[in-house]
């Protein structure tokens, strides 16, 4: 499909424009102001500005080395910005805290705790008594459909199950923002699709703002209200894309014109067309076909 067949990304229909106007009128949950991050001489992030609104789903996408992981780690308070501010409901973030739950790509469940006790961890830290924490944890376990596994240890679970526990563990603290750093990056395609649907389902039912890092374009367009597109060297905001695909989302929308147009637009932002011509993948492919032919003729 070429550009001309798709509606231009910039022509927002009145309904879409209206939707984003309403979104931007919601209170700002998290604000990033003039954020810079230096690692020695290297500028990892340069002048990042962003407002994330209540119950918004923001995805971050960009080439590797664009500093997207650094950005989420600064939002979590795991790293300090060189300059600039991160505000949560107007208060400056300086260190990690339970009001910003985080889900990592590597699951990071505590291997010595059962599913139930992993979920209870944060609750006990915030001073719940054991009984309350346990019944809360049980509810979460039911919600994520792992009732049979409440006393299993993480190594007995599949990747998708582990990530569900990690999400429940972060959400059990009732965070204002859920920070997700390529959470489904290690999962196979099928499990990933299930987890995406599942995350949207949770997000629909729980009052939480999601900040989600990914390198998967489909995933970003499928999940996000808005997509922050970063470029590398230095990591700068290239564009904040408003996804026109109607909410609530479903997998049927993958072939919608808006979906494809948004994808193509971002694709061009990340990989400008000129760059693709230099690619010599085709050459390698031709060579491989020849080799296969030779092998074929022997038998």
């Amino acid at each position: 499909m070429t550009n001309s067949e798709l509606p231009s990304y910039l022509d927002q229909s009145p309904e879409v424009k209206d939707r984003f106007d309403r979104l931007k009128q919601r209170p700002v949950t998290m604000e990033v102001k003039g954020l810079n991050k230096q690692f020695g001489d290297v500028t990892a992030l340069k002048d990042i500005n962003l407002k994330i609104h209540k119950r918004e789903f923001v995805c971050v996408i960009g080439p590797s080395g664009c500093g997207k992981s650094t950005l989420i780690r600064i939002l979590a308070g795991l790293e300090q910005a060189s300059s600039g501010q991160v505000l949560l409901n107007g208060e400056e973030v300086t260190q990690p805290g339970p009001e910003r739950g985080m889900v990592f790509q590597g699951y990071t469940l505590f291997p010595w705790l059962t599913v139930k006790k992993n979920i209870m961890f944060g609750l006990l830290e915030s001073g719940y008594d054991k009984g309350t924490a346990e019944s809360e944890a049980r509810e979460w376990i039911n919600l994520i459909g792992l009732t049979k596994f409440e006393n299993s240890y993480p190594h007995q679970l599949s990747g998708g199950m582990k990530q569900r526990v990690a999400i429940a563990r972060a959400l059990a603290n009732r965070p204002k923002v859920l920070l997700m750093d390529e959470p489904f990056g290690a999962l196979d395609a099928q499990t990933r699709a299930k987890m995406q649907a599942y995350l949207l389902e949770i997000w629909k039912n729980i009052d939480v703002t999601v900040f989600f890092i990914t390198h998967d374009l489909d995933e970003a367009v499928y999940l996000a209200d808005r997509i922050l597109v970063l470029k590398a060297n230095p990591g700068e905001v290239q564009e904040i894309v408003e996804v026109p695909v109607p909410q609530p989302r479903s997998p049927d929308q993958f072939m919608d014109p808006e979906f494809l147009a948004t994808k193509q637009h971002i694709e061009e932002l990340i990989h400008p067309p000129a760059e693709q011509e230099e690619d010599d993948d085709h050459l390698n492919l031709v060579r491989m076909v020849h080799v296969n032919d030779d092998v074929g003729s022997v038998f």
């Binding site: 979590a76 805290g97 339970p98 739950g101 830290e125 563990r169 972060a170």
Partner: peptide, 8 residues
Amino acid sequence: EAAQTLGA
């Protein structure tokens, strides 16, 4: 880090 983000 996970423990820190959970409030430990």
